[in-house]
């Protein structure tokens, strides 16, 4: 039984950051932005949380700093896409580069070395009352509510419909008095907050450490979960948890079969699962055509 609990704890711990970042991707996707900057915003959140704890000694202050920086990065992305007319995919990849390089530079500038930064404490834990799950952070407990809230917002409010209209058919949104550009700003900025939480959970949820490039493609995996889940919050959250499950299973298998299978193969399992997942979801929705159509509709 403890074996099972350990397994669940590992899945929740590695899956929660993915789910938060996936929610940021979902809201951006529905507003019509293919958000490939998730990786960059997430690592800024991770770095800002650890540095914030080290510098201020307070977790709330640290998460506030992370949120502000992540929102700023997201607004920058919006500005480049919407006001400067850049290709969203290229701009997103650029933001990812900025995040990975910028956080390394920040660590170097503040501590004079590129070594990992360790904080004295991390995100508050759930505590004794939760038994085997007590070591998890409060963000894990918050996660299902955030997913549910995102579902209500996107699928059960007029605001959500207008956001989707802005993404799918900007002229339709403009015809009912919604400014598609401003709607995308709201979507990207609120996605910034979610990425900040995701990054904080990654760096300070289980560990309390920030290392260079520590997101290691999790932002892209979240984006894959958005596509896998067809932009639906709950489906995308399950997709993210599925990727996490494959990752944890890979590590377990490594412990069992480490001697007979090269560990690189096992470590690459989550990435292979991502590719497989996106391929399957693509097949279910009529191949690449569905994806290109979504972007065609942006022109008006």
């Amino acid at each position: 039984m403890t074996e099972f609990h350990e397994f669940m704890v590992a899945i929740l711990r590695s899956g929660t950051p993915l789910v938060y970042v996936t929610m940021a991707g979902v809201i951006a996707q529905r507003a019509g932005v293919w958000h490939l900057g998730l990786e960059g915003v997430m690592i800024i959140g991770a770095c800002a949380t650890i540095l914030g704890i080290v510098l201020t000694g307070s977790f709330p202050a640290a998460i506030a700093i992370a949120c502000v920086l992540c929102v700023a990065a997201s607004v920058l992305l919006w500005f480049v896409i919407e006001k400067l007319g850049a290709n969203p995919i290229i701009a997103g990849l650029g933001l990812t580069g900025l995040g990975i390089g910028g956080t390394a530079l920040a660590v170097q500038a503040l501590f004079g070395s590129l070594a990992a930064v360790t904080a004295p404490f991390g995100v508050p834990r759930l505590g004794e009352a939760f038994g085997s799950y007590g070591a998890l952070s409060i963000f894990v407990l918050m996660m299902p509510f955030v997913v549910w809230g995102m579902w209500v917002l996107l699928r059960r409010t007029r605001f959500g419909l207008r956001l989707a209209a802005a993404g799918e058919h900007p002229l339709a949104a403009r015809s009912v008095g919604t400014d598609p550009g401003r709607t995308r700003l709201i979507a990207l900025a609120s996605g910034g907050v979610l990425c900040a939480i995701g990054g904080a959970e990654l760096a300070a949820g289980g560990l309390t450490i920030f290392a260079q490039n520590m997101t290691a493609g999790r932002g892209f995996m979240s984006f894959a979960a958005v596509i896998f889940g067809a932009g639906h919050p709950i489906a995308a959250a399950f997709a993210a948890m599925f990727f996490s499950l494959v990752g944890v299973a890979g590590i377990r298998l490594q412990l069992l079969f480490g001697a007979s299978i090269p560990h690189d193969v096992l470590l690459s399992l989550p990435y292979l699962a991502t590719i497989l997942g996106v391929w399957i979801s693509g097949r279910m929705r009529g191949g690449a055509k569905a994806a290109t159509e979504a972007s065609e509709l942006r022109d008006y």
Binding site: V152, R156, T157, R158, F159, L161, R162, A164, A165, E168, H169, L171, A172, S175, V176, L297
Partner: peptide
Amino acid sequence: ALPPSFTVAEALEFGAGGGIGLYGR
């Protein structure tokens, strides 16, 4: 100018006035 993926009900609702506009199915 109606988003093709919307249902008829959603297409009527997204243009209605008012704020956030929480609704049930």
